[in-house]
């Protein structure tokens, strides 16, 4: 028989667990269950939810189109300074999102490095628009996708790509038919993480895109706003976001919970 578990470990563990779970339970307990359906169907909630889903999905799409090739380049390309590039890609992961928002403003803002030309030449202004929301979310979420896909690519046996080459396949065909299907689980996991991160994005969004209901007010921004004026609405919005997060976790259970 093994000896008893040491209290010095068990006690903080239980406190830690409670610390993580109690606030979530509190959210459910405090929820205005009576008025919840009405709240859910209200115009503001619906609008914020729709905007959030659309923006997070578009941001994820941007991340997929740009991030998967980037992951491939980092994993397979014979680049000098690949380690440095890989580290740079992960910077937005640890950067406070607000700083990301400020950086985006400095570059893409109306008087920003690139933004001034976008404005002068094409009349395009990105800050404080829905497109700005998508960009801010993509900026913050892309590292999640890149890291996940790059990890899957590096774990995949490159000899399958060599086998495809001996069969006459170009690198592009090999990527489409052999490499990508092989790392699909990693791509799916990365996509889900990326989407969840985009959906919850707050700091970069409010800095770069501001807070205009119907245009840039996503769910997290709406929660923040509602907390001042209508706490019940804030709780309802929070519960919706909580459910989405749990749903994401359930979708990834094979990878995380069983491991």
């Amino acid at each position: 028989m093994r000896s008893r578990l040491p209290v010095v470990l068990v006690l903080p563990a239980v406190v830690g667990l409670a610390f993580l779970l109690v606030p979530l339970v509190g959210l459910l307990v405090e929820a205005p269950w009576g008025t919840l359906p009405a709240q859910l169907l209200s115009a503001e909630v619906g609008q914020a939810l729709r905007l959030s889903l659309v923006c997070a999905s578009l941001a994820t799409l941007v991340c997929l189109v740009l991030g998967v090739p980037l992951a491939w380049l980092l994993a397979r390309g014979d680049l000098p300074g690949r380690g440095v590039l890989r580290a740079l890609v992960t910077v937005p992961l640890v950067l406070p999102p607000v700083v990301g928002g400020v950086a985006l403003l400095l570059v893409l803002g109306r008087r920003g490095l690139a933004g001034q030309y976008l404005d002068q030449w094409f009349g395009i202004s990105l800050p404080f628009t829905t497109t700005g929301v998508v960009l801010a979310e993509a900026f913050v979420a892309m590292p999640f996708l890149v890291i996940s896909v790059e990890g899957a690519l590096r774990a995949a046996d490159p000899r399958y790509e060599e086998a495809a080459a001996t069969l006459g396949a170009s690198r592009w065909l090999t990527f489409r038919r052999v490499t990508l299907p092989g790392v699909m689980p990693g791509v799916v996991a990365g996509t889900v993480l990326c989407w969840a991160r985009a959906l919850g994005e707050f700091g970069a969004t409010i800095t770069f895109a501001g807070n205009f209901p119907g245009e840039t007010t996503t769910m997290p921004l709406a929660v923040y706003l509602a907390l001042e004026t209508d706490p019940d609405a804030a709780i309802v919005l929070s519960i919706v976001l909580l459910l989405v997060s749990v749903g994401v976790l359930a979708g990834l259970r094979d990878r995380w919970i069983r491991a």
């Binding site: 000899r159 060599e162 086998a163 001996t166 052999v178 092989g182």
Partner: peptide
């Protein structure tokens, strides 16, 4: 090429 562990495409 017939590779030692065949390298058939699993997908």
């Amino acid at each position: 090429v017939v590779f030692q562990d065949y390298l058939l495409f699993a997908t």
